[in-house]
């Protein structure tokens, strides 16, 4: 182990830093730290188990990341504005059920089902955004309410039965198929993973390069100042929640396609895993700071950890303990860094 660690902690302790290097560090350090943890985990698991580092297992990890990753990206957007979204898990389920209604119950073509899921997500996100921005309900409460409403509606609309997509050829390919595998047969990365990376790239672009992204950070840093400078803060906030909702719709499509069914009772608890990924990735729960890349790495860390502990046949009780400890360590590391910066 001592052979591994020093190479991953290349910093020199105690030396005063120039303002420039400090600035660079602030932006990239958390991601480096998270990335380093990811590498440590990958190396550690590979050293202990010969079965861990196989193409099929790496693909299983990416596959396991896809849904949580997409939900975590949605949660990141909201958390950056200083809010929180507890409804991402059940919204995912609700959009999957709506895709089921359009495709299986109504028998409409595939693109309409995809559109229905994303539109449902955006609409529900807009509702949450309205509760938060216009009705001034604290985000925690507004999205908690939304979480329960959507859980209930999923059960009502589906009649508490799973809706299967057997009559929609190609639906399972959204997540299970592999475009990359058709080009490079040795690397059958499922489309679900590809979609995760596309969503991440798009969200990253929106956050970094658009007005919407700039206002998201500004709202999280100092909403009052933004409002006083004449910006329609309510409108922008609602737009962010709607965007996050639409992304949850993509998550709904991914999970429904992977299971070839919309499972109406699923979804509770997924919001906490998404938030954990966001936090491990260095996004501040108090808003104003965060990156999609960090979240992506956070989601990967969660998936690698879960998969690795399983491959090593660690007792399930202990898997949970270790995962919890890692979350606390990751956030503590982030706080220590901030104190020093």
């Amino acid at each position: 182990m001592s052979a591994v660690i020093p190479t991953l902690a290349p910093s020199t302790p105690g030396k005063p830093k120039s303002p420039l290097s400090r600035l660079i560090e602030m932006g990239t350090h958390q991601r480096l730290l998270a990335f380093a943890s990811l590498i440590v985990l990958l190396i550690g698991f590979s050293l202990v188990s010969p079965n861990f580092m196989q193409t099929s297992n790496m693909i299983a990890i990416l596959q396991a990341t896809s849904v949580n990753g997409v939900l975590a990206i949605a949660a990141t957007l909201v958390i950056i504005t200083g809010g929180i979204d507890l409804s991402v898990g059940t919204l995912m389920t609700f959009t999957a059920v709506m895709a089921g209604v359009v495709l299986t119950y109504a028998g409409m073509p595939l693109p309409l089902g995809v559109a229905a899921a994303i539109a449902t997500g955006a609409l529900c996100g807009l509702c949450s955004g309205t509760f938060v921005a216009k009705m001034k309900i604290p985000p925690f409460i507004a999205t908690l309410g939304m979480m329960l409403i959507l859980k209930g509606l999923s059960l009502v609309i589906s009649g508490t039965r799973p809706i299967y997509f057997n009559d929609t050829p190609g639906f399972d390919l959204i997540s299970r198929g592999s475009l990359i595998g058709e080009i490079i047969p040795a690397l059958p990365i499922p489309n679900g993973v590809l979609i995760l990376f596309l969503v991440a790239a798009a969200a990253s672009y929106i956050l970094g390069r658009t007005v919407l992204g700039r206002y998201a950070f500004a709202l999280g840093s100092n909403e009052e100042a933004v409002r006083l400078s004449g910006v329609n803060t309510d409108g922008w906030k609602m737009a962010i929640y709607a965007l996050a909702g639409g992304i949850c719709g993509i998550g709904g499509l991914l999970i429904a396609s992977r299971l070839n069914s919309a499972q109406p009772a699923l979804g509770l608890g997924y919001e906490l895993e998404a938030i954990a990924a966001v936090v491990i990735g260095g996004t501040s729960l108090s808003g104003g700071r965060g990156t999609i890349l960090g979240t992506l790495i956070g989601a990967l860390i969660m998936a690698v950890l879960t998969n690795g502990l399983r491959v090593l046949s660690v007792a399930q009780e202990w898997q949970t303990v270790v995962t919890g400890a890692i979350i606390i360590l990751a956030v503590y590391a982030d706080m220590m860094r901030r104190k020093k910066a």
Binding site: A9, P13, F45
Partner: peptide, 23 residues
């Protein structure tokens, strides 16, 4: 910065110690 190194160490140690007997 020592903290960070320690943390990475702890993460690695947890991984290895929990799993060593299995190998």
């Amino acid at each position: 910065m020592l903290t960070r190194r320690t943390l990475l160490g702890v993460i690695g140690a947890i991984t290895l110690s929990v799993t060593a007997p299995v190998a």
